[in-house]
Computed example of a mutant assay.
Amino acid sequence: MIVEDEALLCLLADGLLAAEGFDTIFAADETEAMVHATAAADRIAVAVVDMSLGGDVAGPRVIRALRQHAPNLPVVVITGFDGDAPQADLRGLGWPTVRLHKPGGYDELIPAVLDVMEQARTGTWPQEWRRDTDYV
């Protein structure tokens, strides 16, 4: 599932995912995403979600809604916000989640999708997210 309000970026993501064999469904806004979250939750293998939809930081609400139906749904967040900006904060949105910076992050979309799906499949968190005390 691709949740993106910019048509060209949505088409870019669709092309990249289709080349890897993914069938995609689209949502251009939060309302449409919520409909898909309810109606197609069992068919969504991964979600690519823009943090800002129509000028509103709706991405976190969309991710929460998707994960109500599929708690371990792999999510790739695309954001134009700087990683330190409060609007880019992913805490509390669950796991597995990967963040890419927009628009250049689309070059990394397929590796990120495959990575987040592998994290969900294996239950393995990325090592760079772990604290030193997690290894003791």
Rank of each mutant, 00 (worst) to 15 (best):
residue 28 A to S: 12
residue 101 H to T: 11
residue 52 S to C: 10
residue 14 D to E: 15
residue 54 G to R: 10
residue 26 F to G: 01
residue 95 W to M: 12
residue 103 P to E: 07
residue 43 R to G: 00
residue 85 A to G: 00
residue 21 G to Q: 09
residue 64 R to L: 14
residue 118 E to P: 01
residue 96 P to R: 08
residue 136 V to R: 14
residue 89 D to H: 10
residue 71 P to A: 12
residue 121 R to V: 02
residue 127 Q to M: 10
residue 130 R to Y: 09
residue 72 N to F: 07
residue 66 L to N: 03
residue 27 A to W: 04
residue 75 V to W: 00
residue 101 H to L: 10
residue 38 T to A: 13
residue 31 T to W: 05
residue 107 D to V: 08
residue 112 A to P: 14
residue 30 E to L: 05
residue 53 L to M: 09
residue 101 H to R: 11
residue 131 R to P: 00
residue 111 P to R: 00
residue 103 P to W: 06
residue 115 D to E: 13
residue 131 R to I: 03
residue 131 R to H: 10
residue 61 R to T: 08
residue 94 G to C: 06
residue 81 F to D: 11
residue 35 V to C: 00
residue 92 G to L: 01
residue 40 A to T: 01
residue 54 G to C: 09
residue 43 R to N: 05
residue 129 W to A: 14
residue 30 E to W: 01
residue 123 G to K: 05
residue 32 E to I: 03
residue 63 I to W: 09
residue 94 G to W: 08
residue 127 Q to T: 12
residue 19 A to F: 05
residue 133 T to A: 15
residue 57 V to W: 07
residue 85 A to K: 02
residue 76 V to M: 02
residue 128 E to Y: 13
residue 66 L to S: 03
residue 111 P to Y: 01
residue 81 F to E: 13
residue 55 G to M: 07
residue 45 A to D: 15
residue 29 D to V: 02
residue 99 R to I: 04
residue 124 T to Q: 13
residue 41 A to N: 05
